[in-house]
Structures are given as C-alpha cells and as structure tokens.
C-alpha cells in the first residue's frame, strides 16, 4: 500500500513557498478559474458579449430608436450605453447567478475548508469580473469604432465610472446570490437586467420615458452609469453631470455593504 505514488510523494520535499508567494499563487489560480468558468458558460457569453454586440450592431444599422437632441448617428449614442450594459451584465447578472449556484452546490462551503480564505476568494471574483470587462470593452469598442463611433471626452473618468459601477452591480448580484435560492437568483438577476436595461438610458435616452419613471430611473445605478459614460465619452453628452456620479458612488458603497451583511455562505 505504501508503495502508491501519492504515499511516496508524501515524503518531505522542497521547502514550502513563503506565505506571500503562496497567497499570490492561490489568488492567481482562483482568478483564472473564475474567468475560465465564466467564459465557458454559454449563457454567460450570450449575456456578456453576444447580446451587447447584437444590440449595438442592430440599432446602429437599423434606425428605429429615438436619439437625444443633437446626436445624428445612433452608434454615437449607443456605444457608451452598451458599454454600460456590458458592465451590468458581467458584474451583476453573470457574477450573481454563478455565485448563487456555487453556494447551492456547496462550492463556497467547501472552499471555506481550504486555505484559500474568503478575502482571497472575493478578490479573485473581483479580478475575474474586471478581466471579463476588459475583454468586453475591447470587443465592443472595436465593433463600435468599425460602425463609425468617434469617442471623445475623458476616458479616465469613464474608467472611474466603470469601477464604481462594478462595485455597485457586484454588490447587487452578490446580495441576491447570498440570500436567494440559485434558481430565484437566476430569474431575479435576468429580470432586473431587463428592467435596468429599459430604464437605464442604454439603448434610448431617459428623456423619452414618462416623467415620474425617468425620475425613478435616475436614482438607479444603470442610468447613472450610462449617464456618466455618455458624459465622459462624448464630452458633455446627455444625462451626465454630478447627479450621475453621486448616484453611482452611493450604490457603489451601499450595495457591497448590504451584500457583506446579508450573505449566507451555505
């Protein structure tokens, strides 16, 4: 029995890596695994890449949607809005659904018995979301540029808005994942995605919504993100300004805090 390969491998081997190196190794492996799993799930690729690209191309080519005053080409309005949609799909829907099922399948419980640790797991999930967003921005920007998009304004501000929104949407996604059954999270995240898309100023301007609904929409993170991106990427475009940033910052603090206090690991 003791001649089995694993038994002989049990002898003391090389000196163990330092704690910092070990942590980096675990974080890198977990981040890569999270990103791989996201890109391997068909429904996740549909949601994070296919639908945004489809909406961008379709409504850029087929002129059926209203545009804000002063904008002539649809892609000029659509590109920032679809980038906002992409961030929401990854940080809220994809992360929320995946985490909900990991909780239901006891993956989170089991990881809790390994040296990975919850802070490292959360860091890995964050990094994986950011990696997928980088991919989304590259693909969507490429498609938009090919469709004649001419970005302007302040890319640094846009980056800031994306990071705040990532925190906000991740908080919402993880709040659902940590409190609801996985199937309910699946339905709720997709439903919320549709609602926030429709009232998010992503494919058509908020000004075309009824007044009261537009006021509610302005307090939601999707409209705040698309507003901030429109403002920063088209140089003072529609719906930007201080209000969007304030709403975005508020959600970026509130949602993760709620997630942290309500999340149940099993």
């Amino acid at each position: 029995m003791s001649s089995s390969p694993a038994a002989s491998a049990r002898q003391p081997g090389a000196t163990p890596p330092s704690a910092a190196r070990q942590l980096t190794r675990a974080l890198a492996a977990q981040t890569a695994a999270e990103a791989r799993l996201t890109l391997r799930r068909g429904e996740s690729v549909l949601l994070t890449l296919a639908i945004p690209v489809g909406l961008l191309v379709f409504f850029s080519v087929v002129h059926v949607l209203p545009l804000p005053a002063g904008v002539r080409r649809p892609v000029q309005f659509l590109a920032p809005g679809i980038l906002a949609l992409a961030v929401m799909s990854t940080a809220m829907v994809s992360l929320g659904i995946a985490t909900g099922f990991e909780r239901q399948y006891l993956v989170l419980k089991r990881l809790g018995s390994t040296p990975l640790g919850r802070p490292t797991l959360l860091a890995a999930k964050t990094l994986a979301v950011l990696a997928v967003e980088v991919l989304q921005v590259a693909v969507l920007s490429g498609v938009a540029l090919a469709l004649g998009w001419r970005p302007g304004g302040d890319p640094a501000a846009a980056l800031g808005a994306v990071l705040l929104a990532t925190a906000a949407f991740s908080g919402i996604g993880l709040t659902m994942a940590g409190t609801l059954r996985a199937e309910v999270t699946l339905a709720a995240a997709n439903g919320l995605y549709l609602i926030l898309l429709l009232v998010g100023g992503m494919v058509f301007p908020l000004s075309h919504l009824p007044g009261a609904l537009a006021d509610v929409a302005r307090a939601l993170p999707s409209a705040a993100l698309s507003g901030a991106l429109h403002a920063s990427l088209t140089g003072g475009g529609p719906g930007g300004g201080v209000e969007s940033w304030a709403v975005l910052a508020g959600w970026a603090v509130l949602a993760p805090v709620v997630a942290a206090f309500t999340f149940r690991w099993e």
Binding site: A33, L37, R40, R41, F101, E102, Y105, L106, V107, K109, R110, S113
Partner: peptide, 11 residues
Amino acid sequence: VMLQRGGVYPG
C-alpha cells in the same frame, strides 16, 4: 474535508 455531496464547480 470531504462533504457529503457537492462542493465542486459543476463545469
């Protein structure tokens, strides 16, 4: 630790 069931990413 080996749990009674589950505990692995389904994919």
